[in-house]
Design a protein around this nucleic acid. Structure first.
Lengths: 117, 117
DNA sequence: TAGACAGTGAACCTTATGGTTCAGCATGAG
DNA sequence: CTCATGCTGAACCATAAGGTTCACTGTCTA
């Protein structure tokens, strides 16, 4: 497979691709939480949760800090920028194409109707 | 592992997580293309490309149509809605806590720009 | 000081993913 | 009709991903 590159976009999108991780983000959007709390909430082992959190942290979607023996997790703020920018760029393109080309492509006549012209 | 659910968000985000697939979308944003053309462009087998395209199609990011023996691929339009909504919802939460990212979302074109006749 | 508690890390298991090759199967051009 | 072209599908392979358990470290607390 050789996934040679893993730029921010890869990290962020694939972090977001997992429903559990999206759940974690939603949960954290309500309140900060410890690893244990999250593990309980999502019914998985501490270790499993830790892995998710590591990914989320690497993708800069979550920020954690360990005080004493408990690690507290919170949402990291300015993180969707790259994704939004990317999606937005593609979206722009659509807008352009729709106004111009869309009607033609969308309503492309069925093959047998192409006799005239 | 048992990935029991695979709702639109999963599909879309994980489709977007792969750099090749993002590349395909970018390429298609410039012009429609056949499977062969895409496979050549991304230096992979037809079959490999087909798999990517199937995923993209299932995620409703790409639309294909076969005419004769060639299948033409084009961007599908109104597809980031769910993701934008989700991210935006999370972002709302931040807004209460931080106040940074608003500009990005504001710059975004309205998700439903498909007002074509 | 003795546990208990919170988190880590290594090893492992199973399934998913990204890719390949090879063998078809329609379709279009001579 | 024949053959090249364009795509499909099945089988396979290596690695990544999502999870587990078990052993361990560090930190409270009684």
């Amino acid at each position: 497979m050789v996934q040679h590159e893993s730029p921010p976009l890869d990290l962020a999108f694939s972090a977001l691709a997992d429903p559990t991780r999206r759940g974690i983000l939603e949960r954290l959007s309500q309140a900060d939480a410890s690893v244990t709390a999250l593990a309980e909430r999502f019914a998985m082992s501490l270790t499993g949760m830790k892995k998710h959190l590591s990914l989320l942290e690497e993708a800069r979607l979550v920020q954690t800090r360990k005080v004493g023996r408990t690690r507290t997790c919170r949402l990291a703020a300015p993180t969707f920028d790259a994704q939004l920018a990317w999606m937005s760029a593609l979206h722009q393109t659509w807008a352009a194409r729709f106004t111009a080309l869309d009607a033609v492509l969308d309503d492309l006549p069925p093959p047998q109707e192409r006799t005239r012209a």
